[in-house]
Design a protein around this nucleic acid. Structure first.
Lengths: 218, 218
DNA sequence: GAATGTGAATTTATTCACAGCA
DNA sequence: TGCTGTGAATAAATTCACATTC
């Protein structure tokens, strides 16, 4: 690919891009100016061709015989991932996890601004979380439209997850992280990423109990 | 496959098994006794052949012309995933996320017992979290050996994640969920599952910004 | 008749290997 | 020479389609 824009980027490529970005920032902080796919691959334990191919979907950012310029690559990945702007995030469900996320400082660093937290329980509504107060879910739709909410983190109980996502979709929110332990569906145009802790633990017990491990590195 | 045991189960199968298990439990709670791969597939929005194939790796649990007996299937998946026993879990890093996880009730329901929480900060050590007190990381290795810790949830800052995993590995812990935003490596025999929130959000912004969506359902 | 279990076909992802450029 | 970018080769995962069994 010689030009500039993405054409059929494999789904598996995008999460890797975030890994590259993170490592590149680390290198930049250490003052490293250039890196080869080989070096980067060694650092994140991946095949070098994989990295080159992933990057090639977005255009050729490297220099043959030389490698990649760290700052250039950071800029390109940042732009490709849409991280060159801020995003409005809300959290629905002010339970243990929801409030932990609401207070998490890591988001702001990446340009994710938590602009609201919602809950249905009267005992929680109005409580303050770091910055701001917990709002009533009744106000969810109006808020999403008015405040241009981009992403919702859903930390409600399993039973309410689907209806919550339905409401968010209706309110125009097109990106959701679902922490509830249920698979939810959403209309096309709305992307839902499941983050399922119990499931992760079960995959681990499978390994512990004899499922083939993550074999030795070749 | 006609016999009983797993032979080369694809890595992608295991997480799906946890989804099946969850839905099957829900069906059982509703009093449903039999289910076909077709029905199950519709409920979790998957291809029916996928489900049959996944299950076939563990043995034929269904009856042709009839379907699967819910209770039988639950029992088989439970056993295959190693969920027919309890597992000792510790949490390393008693920050926002760590304490939220320590108090989360969902674990116990699945047989995951949080037997310890560790932190390095003197201001946190000794504090109580739901049940028990936060311990000093100095005691990590001894504790892991003595209490037969099976799984560790690592919620320390990025900079400490690798050394924490190293220590856990040395202490004989063979399964780790890493919440820190860094890729960590572990000796073979130790499985690390990354749970990377920032990365999830970035994948979403990629979609929002024009990366091809999760196309319409066929 | 109905639905499983599974080879074969297809699609998707990864890795190889090398031509081409700095 | 050294390293990228990429077709070709391989490997992995998914889906099809059907013979088989209840």
């Amino acid at each position: 690919m010689s030009k500039d824009e993405k054409r059929h980027v494999p789904a598996a490529t995008v999460p890797r891009l975030t890994l590259y970005l993170r490592k590149l920032r680390e290198l930049q902080a250490r003052g490293v100016e250039r890196v080869s796919s080989q070096e980067l691959a060694a650092m994140i334990d991946l095949n070098a061709a994989q990295i080159r191919k992933d990057l090639s979907y977005f255009g050729g950012f490297g220099t043959r015989g030389v490698g990649y310029e760290v700052s250039r690559l950071i800029a390109e990945i940042t732009r490709s991932l849409g991280l060159d702007r801020d995003w409005n995030v809300i959290i629905v469900g002010a339970g243990l996890l929801g409030t932990a996320l609401a207070r998490y400082r890591g988001f702001a660093e990446q340009g994710f601004r938590v602009v609201g937290v919602f809950d249905s329980s009267p005992t929680v509504i109005g409580a303050s979380f770091g910055v701001g107060r917990v709002r009533a879910v009744e106000d969810l739709e109006a808020f999403c439209v008015q405040e241009q909410v981009d992403i919702a983190l859903v930390t409600v109980p399993a039973a309410e997850a689907q209806s919550t996502v339905d409401r968010l979709a209706r309110a125009g929110v097109r990106a959701v992280v679902n922490f509830a332990p249920v698979k939810v569906t959403a209309p096309s145009g709305v992307t839902v990423r499941p983050v399922d802790l119990s499931s992760e633990l079960m995959v681990l017990t499978y390994r512990l109990v004899g499922g083939e491990g993550q074999g030795p590195r070749p």
